[in-house]
Design a protein around this nucleic acid. Sequence first.
DNA 1: ACTACACCTTGACCAAAATCAATTATCACA
DNA 2: TGTGATAATTGATTTTGGTCAAGGTGTAGT
Lengths: 246, 246
Amino acid sequence: MTHKSNPSEIKTYLKTISIFKDCSDSFLAKISANAQCQIHKKGKILFVHDDTIERFYIIKSGWVKLFRETLDGAQAVVDILDNHHVLGEIAIFENNIVPYSAEVVSNAEIISLPLANLKKEIKNDNQLALNMLKSMAHDRRRKDKEIEHRTIQNAPQRIGCFLLRLIDQNQKGPVTIHLPYDKTLVAARLGMQPETFSRALSKLRDETGIRINGATIEMESLDQIVRYSCAACSSNFPCQDLKTTS
Amino acid sequence: MTHKSNPSEIKTYLKTISIFKDCSDSFLAKISANAQCQIHKKGKILFVHDDTIERFYIIKSGWVKLFRETLDGAQAVVDILDNHHVLGEIAIFENNIVPYSAEVVSNAEIISLPLANLKKEIKNDNQLALNMLKSMAHDRRRKDKEIEHRTIQNAPQRIGCFLLRLIDQNQKGPVTIHLPYDKTLVAARLGMQPETFSRALSKLRDETGIRINGATIEMESLDQIVRYSCAACSSNFPCQDLKTTS
DNA sequence: ACTACACCTTGACCAAAATCAATTATCACA
DNA sequence: TGTGATAATTGATTTTGGTCAAGGTGTAGT
């Protein structure tokens, strides 16, 4: 499964990752030398919460689910990430213990890097620390928003809001949206049961006039969904700040 | 309302704040020179979300509620903070715009400092950046946990979990807990209606045998609550990691 | 093309929490 | 010490979402 990885190729890619933006070349060289790039199949568990890990990961393609589970199997999805997202890096603050499990949910290409380097360099490279801080701040903000949505939006509204965040919110006229992953997973991501998701999506359709065809959703304009979902939100539309593009 | 503030006294206090731990003396001197300490009464709004602010705040005593509101008045509590917590500092990443509103919910003593200094110094003082990063990481973890709890715990379980996080979880034998603020506010903090809180607390009492007397809650030991609440949580008890002491 | 399996939907029912409404309790302050 | 105002509780009811069960759909892999 391990891919023959060209270090300089990886180094070029790493430069596109927000937490490595404008980082010192010496750091990038060091860290990319130890990089691995692997292709993982759907279902692959990268690590389990409370594991001690030695490497953190960057998603080059595909989707990864972050979650935690109770003893009796109840699962809470913490986040679902795609390209350019970093995971497990947080472990540097907790003796290399990760606070969530990570599972590949669609075939994915994933780079892994040693945590130790990051841990060491963050002390020397202020730019790295600042980038991480900014990314973390952005992410914390997203979590706040998530909590707000769980508090004041109902199931169909949460779905509408989710859809709006998948696209460029400034486009006028007809829009087509493709769900990025399984409906079951979208449901979990939004903190509801698959059955509830199915029914709530139908309700959203009835209320807003969108057309649903499998994972494809079409509408004449965003207006209807905006009116329906964004009424139960403290932000003004467009709210692109909530994109996962940290 | 402005308090005559002794700069060196404030400087001493600032050293006890986690994000300023081990920070350069030059930074501490600079920032405490511009510090103000004010006493605010319950109900005082420090700032409103999407405001542009010039200062950030540190709570010396009392409680502050962070929240957001929709146009039609629905409110979501983002967090409730006490001593040693910092708020508004996040605005340095967003052109001084704060993402939440802040309201004093019990008479409080609050220090304010110019955001500009923080913004400038964070680039020079790596220790400051690292401290903030660590604090932010911890906080993001707390938010994840919050989302998890909203997903898999019901109302009485959330209350039990909330109670456990108020105290030293390692103590054996009888325990007395005082709710730190109004039940209405606890309810909002846990994302439920006051009526639901009232009923859920009664249910928790019936299920675990705790005794409730106004804001005072007594029990023979923590065991019962742990069994009742922590079953619906992915962490093992004790879970002190979730304390707000960032 | 067939099969196995996972995904999705639908219906019936149930449980949890929100809402609406009416008291009662508590507390700051005159 | 009374008196409003706010907080808290309780009851009745509705709404929302979860659970259980069955059936349909789609698709990867042989």
